[in-house]
């Protein structure tokens, strides 16, 4: 396949890329950071659902999701305007308004992509500007024989569903329900022998941008450590 190479301008910087490539990875390769949660470079058909990757393109009336925007010759892109920052902030606030992570006791603390994006967008992880919606789910769901799921941390990015679909073996994760009730479900994993094979994969736990999915084994070890530390703190006279 002969690829045509085109030149585009991003934030005033001229860069070259194969025509038709998605804009988001092109920018990332050239050290222009664009936040994203729902996108993975392996995806042929990105869902474009998190709306954190919005950019402005000259000549287009509205901002577009860069993860699904094909590169064209002469394109002029802005990723850092005030407008774009504001829009991304709104998307972020909407996201965290249903989120309820406790960073201090979270397995993903400091490696969490949501924390990183919060910093980049100058937003707190608990927004005061939108009413917080407490989704009617327990803190942990442990139906799966191998996986531990914390629905209140899940940003519903769908990365786990994607990587799981790429694996031939194992139990298949998917979204269940819809709207505010959408959740990653493990229904049937108790009666599906394939679920035990998940122990050899765990790709979903590695791809989760936050601490919502982990292997039970790792999770238990982590919680034991947290408890131990809390105990030690209590015992130390201060």
């Amino acid at each position: 396949m002969s690829e045509k190479i085109v030149t585009i301008t991003v934030d005033g910087k001229k860069i070259t890329a194969p025509e038709g490539a998605w804009l988001l990875p092109v920018c990332l390769e050239h050290d222009i950071y664009i936040p994203s949660l729902c996108w993975l470079k392996e995806m042929d058909d990105p869902p474009a659902s998190c709306r954190l990757c919005l950019v402005e393109i000259e000549g287009l009336p509205e901002p577009v999701a860069s993860c699904r925007c094909p590169v064209r010759e002469g394109m002029v892109v802005r990723t850092n305007s005030d407008e774009i920052l504001k829009l991304r902030q709104v998307a972020f606030r909407l996201l965290v308004s249903t989120n309820d992570g406790h960073c201090n006791t979270c397995i993903a603390n400091r490696s969490c992509e949501l924390q990183q994006i919060a910093k980049f967008l100058h937003q707190p992880l608990r927004t005061k500007r939108l009413r917080h919606i407490d989704r009617d789910y327990p803190e942990i769901i442990d139906d799966h024989p191998v996986l531990m799921y914390e629905p209140k941390k899940c940003v519903l990015c769908g990365r786990c569903v994607y990587v799981c679909s790429q694996n031939e073996r194992g139990y298949k994760l998917d979204f269940a329900k819809r709207g505010m009730d959408t959740i990653i479900s493990f229904y049937g994993s108790d009666i599906d022998p394939a679920a035990k094979e998940c122990a050899d994969c765990l790709a979903c736990t590695e791809i989760c941008p936050v601490g919502a999915l982990s292997s039970k084994e790792k999770w238990r070890r982590f919680i034991a450590e947290v408890r131990l530390k809390q105990e030690q703190k209590k015992q130390k006279p201060s």
Partner: peptide
């Protein structure tokens, strides 16, 4: 189709 998908 995997049962998780069917439920979804």
């Amino acid at each position: 189709v995997a049962i998780g998908k069917v439920y979804g």
